[in-house]
Each structure stands twice: as C-alpha cells, then as structure tokens.
Simulated scan of single mutants.
Amino acid sequence: MSKIMQPQSAIAQREAVSLVARTVQGSAVQGKASPILEAVLTNVFGEGIGGQDIHFFLTGTHADLGSVSTNPEGVARFDVGSHISDIQSMLSGAFNGYTAEYGGSRNYRSATAHGNFNVTI
C-alpha cells in the first residue's frame, strides 16, 4: 500500500482542534473497576466535532484499549469494561493515566490529550 503525501499547503489549511481527556472517577471493589473514559473534541470556536474516531490507550504501558467515535457534541465515551483485566495494567492506569488520541482528518489537525484515573478503594 502506498502512502499518499499531502502538499504542505493542504496540511497548513487544516483547522486546529482541541482534545481534552477528562479525569475518570471510579472505585476499585474487589480488584474490579469499570471506568468510562471520556474525551471532548472541539474546533477553534469551542464547537463539538462529531463523527471523528478517538483512540484510547494506557499511558504507561501503551496498552491498546480501543476506539470510539465522537457524538454530535464532540464527546467520545469509552467503557473500559474488560479491556483492563490484569493487575499490572490496572496499576499502570492508576499511576500513569490514559491517553486519548485523534489522528486528524482532511479538515482537522491531529491532537492528543492525557487523562487521569481517580480511583478509590
């Protein structure tokens, strides 16, 4: 598969975005936690950008959690569920947090944001 290179002028014309990953509140009961990760993608005017894929992974281990599309308000919610099942990943997430990543599109630039886990026992 060949990679299509875009002229620098096309890249410069893409609109800047803001990606904010929210702190996740949760409780670890008997070694189980099921947090919902949340990231908000907005344009330069603060308006949500819908229909864009946001990828989530653990910051410390770079463990791939998965992707989800933003809703019309630009909010992407990802239910971690069974994606964090081993104790090492749970601890890494608790200490290092998670990363939300937007790869950009024809119209928008890419963005990355860091979120934290606030887990109580």
Rank of each mutant, 00 (worst) to 15 (best):
S67N: 08
G60Q: 12
G46I: 02
L65I: 09
P72Q: 12
M90T: 07
N71D: 15
T61P: 08
T70M: 07
I49Q: 00
L58N: 08
L41N: 01
H62V: 09
G46S: 07
Q52F: 02
A76R: 03
P72E: 13
G51M: 08
V75K: 12
E47S: 14
H62F: 07
S69M: 14
N43T: 09
V44Y: 05
D64C: 06
G50K: 08
P72G: 06
A63Y: 05
H55Y: 10
A63D: 11
N43R: 03
V80E: 10
D86E: 13
Q52I: 02
F78V: 08
G74S: 07
S82N: 10
F56L: 05
V40M: 00
I54Y: 01
M90H: 10
L65Y: 03
L41E: 08
F56Y: 07
L41H: 02
V40R: 12
G66Q: 09
F78N: 05
I49G: 03
A39P: 11
L58Q: 09
T59K: 14
R77A: 09
G66R: 10
T42C: 07
T59D: 12
G81I: 05
T61R: 11
S85T: 13
G60L: 06
H62M: 10
V44N: 14
T61M: 06
R77H: 06
M90Q: 15
E47T: 13
G48L: 03
L91K: 14
